[in-house]
Simulated assay, not measured.
Amino acid sequence: MEPVLDWLQITVLALIQGLTEFLPISSSGHLILVPQLFGWQDQGLAFDVAVHIGTLSAVVLYFRNDIRLMITDWTRSLITRQPTSNSRLAWWVILATLPAIAFGFVINNGLEESLRNPLIIAATTIGFGILLWWSDIKGQKIRDEYSLSFKDITVIGFAQALALIPGTSRSGITITAALLVGLTPQAAARFSFLLSIPIILGAGILKLKDLLESAHPVQWQAMIGGTLISAISAYIVIALFLKWINRVGMAPFALYRLALGALLIYLFI
């Protein structure tokens, strides 16, 4: 039976999804820590579907003009064989998603549960936080997302596949890889957010399939509330992150990850 969620749980869990989906700070670390602190049970499949719909809606709405141009130019390029910067960007999003799909099949065939260990999540939160900081220091920061090459996409795509290991942070590892191939922080974040669309969509479809096969009743109030809260918070995060990231850099997020990882070790060791 799906748990009955009160409005505190709905609000907190939806905010966590909206805030951590796009910030490079590890959503899985927070989703383990917060229920532990509040003594909550798992929120259930229906709520997971709702907050995924919310974050997907936010990123699609924010990048709606970019997505329209990418789809239009990509479709036209299939006919004319004349690529544009937007059609190439669409291809890069598609190709960079493939390693995560392949790795996802491996994880779903038995490894996922064994990796959802608090100490593994703590280690990856800390380790990839240090790598994020290092990439911010070492990256050249001179290129935009339209200058990406197939070699760059291979690096970013395989980095995104690592995000299926809990604690890694999908946005964190893809921004790290993009910085290492020379993108500016804002360009790295923009590409990471565009790259999130097929991943969030795929995860949402899989969860929706499981939900439709479940006999448990759906709490529509929790679903609607979770969708709206996660969508609004995610949209704000995307807008503010892209506005300030070139000035702020990755150090604050890396330090936060170190603190979060240390707290997880303290609570679960």
Results as ranks from 00 to 15, higher is better:
Val218Gln: 01
Leu242Trp: 09
Leu208Pro: 12
Ser233Ile: 12
Lys209His: 13
Ser192Asn: 05
Pro217Asn: 11
Leu260Ile: 04
Ile245Ala: 12
Pro198Thr: 06
Leu211Phe: 11
Asn246Asp: 15
Leu260Arg: 03
Ala203Lys: 04
Gly202Ile: 02
Val218Tyr: 07
His216Tyr: 12
Ile238Cys: 01
Leu255Met: 15
Leu201Lys: 03
Tyr235Ser: 01
Ile229Gln: 00
Phe191Ala: 08
Glu213Val: 08
Gly204His: 04
Arg190Tyr: 12
Leu263Gly: 03
Leu206Lys: 09
Leu242Arg: 10
Ala222His: 03
Met250Glu: 12
Gly225Gln: 13
Pro198Trp: 09
Ile265Met: 15
Ile200Thr: 00
Ser233Tyr: 00
Val248Pro: 10
Ala254Leu: 03
Asn246Trp: 00
Arg247Asn: 13
Phe191Ser: 10
Gly204Trp: 09
Ser233Trp: 01
Gln221Arg: 11
Ala239Thr: 07
Phe193Ser: 03
Asp210Cys: 02
Leu255Trp: 15
Ile232Gln: 03
Val218Arg: 07
Glu213Gly: 13
Leu208Gly: 10
Ile200Trp: 03
Leu211Thr: 06
Glu213Met: 06
Ile205Asn: 06
Phe191Gln: 04
Ile197Met: 08
Ile200Val: 14
Ser214Thr: 09
Ala262Ile: 14
Tyr256Asn: 07
Leu255Ser: 08
Leu208Trp: 11
Ala262Val: 13
Pro217Cys: 05
Leu212Glu: 04
Leu263Phe: 12
Arg247Phe: 10
Lys243Arg: 14
Ala251Arg: 15
Leu206Met: 10
Thr227His: 05
Gly249Cys: 13
Asn246Met: 01
Leu194Cys: 11
Val218His: 14
Thr227Cys: 11
Ser214Arg: 07
Ile265His: 02
Ile232Asp: 00
Ala251Ser: 14
Leu228Met: 10
Leu194Ile: 08
Pro198Tyr: 09
Tyr266Pro: 01
Trp244Tyr: 15
Ile199Gly: 00
Ala187Arg: 09
Ala239Tyr: 15
Gly225Leu: 05
Leu240Val: 09
Phe191His: 11
Ala189Phe: 05
Gly226Pro: 14
Leu206Gln: 09
